[in-house]
Simulated assay, not measured.
Amino acid sequence: MLSILKSVIKRSDVILEVLDSREPELTRSRRIERIVKGSGKPIILVLNKGDLVPLDVLKGWKDFYEMQGFKCVFVSSREHQGTKFLRNVIKESLRGRTGVVGVIGYPKTGKSSVINVLKGRHAASTSSVPMSTGFTKALQIVRIDSRIYAIDTPGIIPPDGDPLERAIRGSKPEDLEDPLKVAMALIERISRFNKGSLTQAYGTEFSTPLDLLEKIALKRGWIFRKDREPNVDQAAVQLIRDFHEGKIVYYTKPKGFEDDKTSNI
């Protein structure tokens, strides 16, 4: 994987690192950033899924990363927002020359979707399940316009970290040793930052993570026949998938961020 990544960086003139706007810090790969910086290639942080985060929080993250010396753009590939500005930043980084953009990031940050909206129509394969078999096994070179080409890099940065971090970074729930434990930790994390987001997503109040999973299972009819107990394991897997697919609207904030009136992108 690392050799492929280094090859992509070598072939590219500019690197886009696509992050999940809800969890930018946990969906960054600092190791990859160090490799890119060592190559001397410019890197642009792209905060995707911006429709799930208030505009002032997105601006806060943009300021946070620009203070660290990064170029940063927030977009919503799902809502086709911010991509014109991203295209202009890419052109500025290329200094008017024809060039290749390497698009990197963890699974489910929306790398292929960002390429699709930059091009204006479907250009790269996408999948609703992270790292699914049969989707973009090889690197794809996609023409964005007459002067910009992009390299899509699906699956070359496998999710790492502890089980919760791996889930946030796009690991399939089936690949986690204990999806139930991870889902409960994810519920606790989301509730800590945005208390009502899960109630809004699932249409039910809950007292504990397990209580929410039981209610999801009952609502979906996921019940064991033998004892009529709710299948919380299945609910846990679904909740992690819902997170990957952007069905849970919540956000974290950059250090030192001060709350203002918020509005969506």
Rank of each mutant, 00 (worst) to 15 (best):
P107L: 11
S93N: 14
K91G: 00
R95A: 12
S125M: 12
F135K: 14
F135G: 00
G105A: 08
V114S: 04
M131E: 14
H122D: 13
K119S: 12
S127R: 14
S132W: 03
G99S: 10
S125A: 15
V117F: 00
V101P: 01
T133E: 13
L118N: 06
H122L: 13
L94F: 02
H122A: 13
T109V: 15
S132A: 15
V129F: 13
R95C: 04
F135Q: 06
I115N: 01
T136V: 00
G99A: 09
G99Y: 09
S125P: 00
T98E: 15
K119P: 02
G110S: 09
G105K: 05
V117M: 02
R121F: 12
V129R: 14
S125E: 14
G110M: 08
K111H: 12
V114H: 01
A123Y: 03
K108N: 15
P130W: 07
V100I: 15
G96E: 02
A123F: 07
K91D: 07
V103G: 04
K119F: 01
K108L: 10
S125R: 15
V114K: 03
G110A: 09
G96P: 05
V103R: 04
A124N: 08
V117S: 05
K119G: 15
N116P: 08
T98V: 10
S93W: 03
G96M: 05
T136K: 09
K111G: 06
V101R: 02
N116Y: 06
I115W: 03
T136D: 07
H122V: 14
L118D: 05
T136Q: 09
L118E: 09
S113L: 06
P130K: 06
V103Y: 03
V101K: 02
I104R: 00
S128G: 03
V114P: 02
V100D: 00
L94P: 02
S132Y: 04
R95E: 14
S128L: 10
S125K: 15
T98Q: 11
V114R: 00
S132C: 01
L118F: 09
N116F: 06
T109I: 12
A123L: 08
S127T: 14
M131Q: 12
L94T: 04
S125T: 14
T98R: 14
V129D: 10
P107M: 13
Y106G: 06
L118Y: 08
V100Q: 02
S93Y: 02
L94H: 04
